[in-house]
């Protein structure tokens, strides 16, 4: 039983590590901000869940450690989409526009978000 748990948790850890790594690769391979966000989302959700679950299997059933890992898990699942959404929204309202693949299938991005101002959002730091 113990060996079985070990194997499962190793598999989860390695898989999670791979997910995180590919997400990080994704934020370099994708062309613009909005698509990069998806790559980041991958690591945030599945990558971290896999790693945390993998760790949970290794606790040896210490209650506090389990609870802490579960808290981290819940917290990431709650905040990461929120942060992504806030970021996307801020970027959209800040005048950043996604590069669209096939414009013919997209709705027009509504004017109410303001005019694109790509020059002013660059290099503010």
């Amino acid at each position: 039983m113990a060996i079985f748990l070990d194997v499962v948790s190793w598999a989860l850890l390695i898989l999670g590590g791979f997910m995180c790594f590919s997400g990080a690769v994704g934020i370099h391979r994708f062309p613009d901000f909005f698509s990069r966000m998806h790559a980041a989302g991958v690591t945030d959700t599945l990558g971290s869940s896999l790693i945390l679950i993998g760790l949970m299997l290794q606790t040896g059933w210490q209650a506090t450690v389990l609870v802490k890992l579960a808290l981290i898990f819940l917290f990431i699942l709650l905040t990461s989409p929120t942060a992504s959404h806030a970021l996307a929204k801020a970027a959209l309202h800040g005048g950043l526009r996604p590069k669209l693949g096939k414009p013919e299938v997209s709705d027009e991005i509504p004017e109410k978000f303001g005019k694109p101002r790509s020059e002013s959002v660059n290099n503010q730091l």
Partner: peptide, 12 residues
Amino acid sequence: QHKILRIVGKIL
């Protein structure tokens, strides 16, 4: 307008 932020903030 920040519905999501508001609710998640309240929970957290």
